[in-house]
Computed example of a mutant assay.
Amino acid sequence: MDIKNYIKSRWNQHAERYDKIPAHGVNSEKDKIAVKEALKEILKEKMRVLDIGCGTGFLSLILAELGCEVVAIDLSENMMEKAKEKAEKFGYNILFKVEDAENLSFEDETFDAVLERHVLWTLPNVERAIKKWTRVLKKRGKLILIESEKKGNTANHHYDEEIAKKLPFGNGVDLEKFEEIAKSCNLTFTTKKLDCEKINLMIICEKL
């Protein structure tokens, strides 16, 4: 089974109902405010920012609200179409591209910040992904990850057991392992808790 095609297919299927699932937080005003306020402390207006795995646009829209120049990528065309509709509705000029988070096409040192929300658990090659994200960051650029901390050994939702076993962070981020990856990529590493319902861990790294 080709894991990337499987994952892409699953999220294309989820696109129509994704925003209606409360656990995803995309319709929670409380989560939106918590994320927006946290990002305001880190990002400045007109920063060029890459939103990895933008899905239906939760984070992309917040970044645009904050005055950032946003480039948003996702493997799922159907999820991204929903994000495009929202951006057009609110008049935000966001560049959307279909891209694999583990194989970015952008040139080195293109972005002031790279962000993602609840994406690491879907990746079979986390270390490769972090290296690619670091590559496209400018020096002193920020890598900001909004995630959930590891709760167990195996992911038990969205994907079948065979796929879940191939996802290193499939049931949340192992912070010790992630810190090792960050150091190997010449990134600083800090964390903070967000006042969000479920996805409440923010990992903040800086490229040295």
Rank of each mutant, 00 (worst) to 15 (best):
E85K: 11
E85P: 02
E85T: 03
K86E: 12
E88I: 13
E88P: 03
E88C: 07
K89Y: 14
K89E: 15
K89G: 12
F90N: 12
F90A: 11
G91S: 08
G91F: 06
G91E: 04
G91M: 06
Y92V: 04
Y92F: 14
Y92I: 07
Y92G: 05
N93R: 13
N93G: 10
N93F: 09
I94H: 06
I94T: 08
I94F: 10
L95I: 10
F96M: 11
K97W: 05
K97N: 13
V98E: 15
V98L: 15
V98H: 12
V98Q: 15
V98R: 15
D100Y: 13
A101N: 00
A101Q: 01
A101E: 02
E102L: 04
E102D: 11
N103Q: 12
N103M: 13
L104W: 05
L104Q: 09
L104P: 08
F106I: 07
F106E: 03
F106N: 04
F106S: 07
E107R: 11
D108H: 05
D108E: 14
D108T: 10
D108R: 06
D108V: 08
D108S: 11
D108L: 02
E109C: 12
T110D: 06
F111E: 05
F111Y: 08
D112K: 05
D112E: 06
D112A: 04
D112H: 07
A113C: 02
A113N: 01
V114P: 02
V114R: 01
V114E: 01
L115Q: 03
E116H: 09
E116A: 11
R117P: 07
H118S: 09
H118N: 13
H118L: 13
V119P: 01
L120T: 07
L120S: 04
L120G: 02
L120H: 05
W121E: 05
W121K: 04
T122P: 06
L123Q: 03
L123I: 11
P124I: 11
N125D: 13
N125F: 09
V126I: 12
V126C: 11
V126K: 08
V126L: 15
E127Y: 13
E127A: 14
E127N: 15
R128M: 15
A129V: 10
A129H: 10
I130G: 01
I130D: 00
K132M: 14
K132E: 15
K132A: 15
T134I: 02
R135S: 14
V136R: 00
V136A: 01
L137V: 02
L137D: 03
K138H: 08
K138C: 06
R140D: 03
R140I: 00
R140C: 01
R140T: 03
R140H: 03
G141I: 00
K142V: 01
K142P: 01
L143Y: 01
L143P: 01
L143A: 03
I144S: 02
L145P: 00
L145T: 02
L145D: 00
I146N: 08
I146M: 08
I146C: 08
I146P: 02
E147L: 03
E147W: 07
S148H: 13
S148P: 07
S148N: 14
S148F: 12
